[in-house]
Design a protein around this nucleic acid. Structure first.
Length: 283
DNA sequence: AAGGTAACCTGACTGC
DNA sequence: TGCAGTCAGGTTACCT
């Protein structure tokens, strides 16, 4: 579910409920996520004050300062994770795995498939947060200066020279630019009129300038609409996203292209579905 | 280093 | 109704 827009909508939604608040407990009902939830998490967080609510790629980073020591709570939503602000007496669902208690509210992590993660990075760790194992190999942020304007296209162009992998899989890897998942990869390539099967190394600078622009635009437009809700994504207040209504190609196999009426095609690339219009994205 | 595949897990849907 | 098979928004581990 959650690509950058859904993660950012979540981050923006939870931030005002956490900022400056004191954590007074942690409930772990099922710690068997993508990686085990650290058993000492409650000890690290209880009594801590939330200082920052940031994001790196699809990871939410909650900076805390406590008596026991400062650090960062790293949260990833995986495929089906959600973070919601609930009252302490809210009924507990089957997949409500972790609660962070903040007085009269709780931050509740729900994740049916348990591909998500909740980790802790201590501020006194010799390895800096952004150099830690899950964050160190991420590409640039799509809304950072490094991907703004001409720099974005230039970066995609330079980093893909000699690469045989398809442009779709290059986007999905997150090694050059982060946040583009399976939906927004298909959508940004459609908007840039680029065929997803193209080898990344064979596309020219001009086409990458267009692609970078469309990536920025489609991610921004999706954030404005609250993300995409296909099955289970909800924001921190339980609100659904509406960007799925604006899809040009994703999950529209056989249906007419919204620009030229040609039936949209689906193909498999690295075990993931890709959707594209064979006419609008001829090359 | 780059490329390909399998794995983690639950739920929804399809077809027999 | 039931059961097997397939697919789903992500990421890492482990092979060539």
């Amino acid at each position: 579910m959650p690509e950058l827009p859904e993660v950012e909508v979540t981050r923006q939604g939870i931030a005002p409920h956490l900022q400056g608040r004191v954590i007074d407990g942690v409930t772990i009902r099922n710690g068997a996520l993508r990686w085990p939830v650290p058993r000492h998490l409650s000890a690290k967080l209880t009594g801590a004050v939330v200082q920052t609510i940031g994001r790196r790629g699809k990871f939410i980073l909650i900076g805390c300062e406590g008596a026991v020591g400062a650090g960062t709570l790293i949260i990833h939503l995986g495929m089906t994770g959600t973070l919601r602000i609930v009252r302490p007496d809210a009924p507990v669902g089957v997949h409500d795995h972790v609660d962070i208690h903040l007085g009269a509210t709780r931050l509740r992590f729900n994740d049916p498939r348990r591909f998500g993660a909740i980790l802790w990075h201590a501020a006194d760790d010799p390895v800096p947060l952004l150099a830690s194992s899950h964050l160190r190999s991420l590409g640039v942020e799509p809304f950072s200066p490094a991907f703004a304007g001409e720099a974005g296209g230039r970066l995609l162009f330079q980093k893909t020279r000699g690469r045989l992998v398809s442009v779709k899989q290059m986007l999905l890897s997150g090694q050059i630019v982060v946040g583009v998942g399976n939906i927004y990869a298909s959508e940004s390539l459609f908007r840039a009129r680029i065929n997803p099967k193209n080898a990344a190394g064979r596309l020219g600078l001009v086409r990458y300038q267009r692609l970078a622009e469309e990536i920025r635009q489609v991610l921004q437009a999706a954030i404005v609409k609250g993300g995409s809700t296909l099955r289970d994504f909800v924001g921190s207040d339980g609100q659904r996203g509406y960007f799925q209504l604006d899809y040009f190609v994703y999950d529209r196999a056989q249906m007419p292209c919204r620009v030229c009426q040609t039936p949209v095609r689906m193909l498999r690339q690295g075990q993931r579905s890709t959707f594209y219009c064979p006419k609008c994205q001829r090359c």
